[in-house]
């Protein structure tokens, strides 16, 4: 049994690991860049200058210009918004659905739980990224469709973890005691059980953001991500790959951004796992 500490205490405990501290610092920078994109970006990320297409890095354009002469640095800065939003948004939607369904199934048990478990097994048998590609391909590229495509199966993992935790916690003495004094079911679930199941979910969600960012990059790489002219890191890599041998800078910058963000989330996830002492039910 682990208890979730206060947010500030948790952050302090997590930051004790050097990797996690570095990850948190990096994420803070990326989120700050995303939030302040209009102030930081040196140019309009959509402004084309066709005659300067594929120009390499120089003083005016530190990371060069893309096929349409758009400033790569500005697109990278704005791309952080979309990539991080997809990562966080996908996890938020999946988490909401996962916690709700997993908690209800674990708490009430019986036929509903059996149906839930079988449904989860069936859904987990689907290759997630292939389903996402299919959905994005048919519905067309857009931010909403990417979010939908990645969340359709994303909730299942969280739901299973929550269900397992609820089953464990609801058999504990303090829950029995609350039940004995006449707490209604919703109060039992909301105030006694759920708060005590969140530790592994927090860790799982951190890794989930990293996975969603990579998945978005994959979809955008295949041309199924956000719709042009918007920039996400994946779509920048997808557009740049055609010029791998004439303008490698188009792929290098967003590739590095995806890499660093994913590594940062992984490090923070590892740190959280240690801080919360979660030894099972994660990943």
């Amino acid at each position: 049994m682990t208890e979730i500490p206060g947010a500030l205490a948790l952050l302090r405990r997590t930051a004790r690991r050097p990797g996690a501290a570095a990850g948190m610092a990096l994420l803070a920078v990326f989120f700050l860049v995303a939030a302040l994109a209009p102030e930081i970006a040196p140019y309009d990320p959509l402004a084309q200058s066709l005659d300067e297409g594929l120009a390499g890095p120089d003083r005016a354009h530190w990371l060069g210009q893309d096929r349409f002469g758009r400033d790569v640095l500005s697109r990278l800065v704005y791309g952080a918004r979309l990539s991080l939003a997809v990562g966080v948004g996908t996890v938020a939607v999946s988490l909401l659905a996962g916690i709700l369904l997993g908690a209800l199934a674990g708490f009430f048990g019986g036929t509903a739980d059996r149906i839930f478990t079988r449904a989860c097994d069936v859904l987990l048998a689907f290759p997630g990224i292939l389903l996402a590609i299919g959905i994005a391909a048919v519905r067309g590229p857009s931010f909403g469709n990417v979010l939908f495509a990645l969340s359709v199966l994303g909730w299942v993992g969280y739901a299973r973890v929550v269900r397992a935790q609820v089953l464990k916690v609801k058999a504990m003495e303090f829950v029995e005691a609350a039940r004995a004094v006449g707490s209604p079911a919703t109060r039992l679930l909301a105030t006694h059980i759920l708060p005590n199941t969140l530790s592994p979910i927090v860790v799982e969600a951190t890794f989930g953001v990293a996975r969603a960012i990579v998945a978005e990059a994959g979809l955008s790489f295949l041309g199924l991500g956000v719709s042009p002219p918007a920039a996400s890191w994946g779509s920048m890599i997808g557009e740049g790959r055609h010029f791998l041998f004439v303008a490698p800078h188009l792929v290098a910058a967003p590739g590095a951004a995806v890499f660093l963000t994913v590594v940062a989330f992984q490090f923070v996830g590892d740190g959280l796992r240690d801080a919360l002492d979660v030894r099972e039910d994660t990943r």
Partner: peptide
């Protein structure tokens, strides 16, 4: 690529274009 350029050129005259890049069959 062509769609992206046309989108920008039409924006210059006040026409907002949404590009829908779809799988070939669709």
């Amino acid at each position: 690529n062509v769609a992206t350029v046309i989108q920008e050129q039409l924006r210059q005259v006040g026409i907002a274009v949404e590009i829908q890049s779809l799988e070939w069959g669709t």
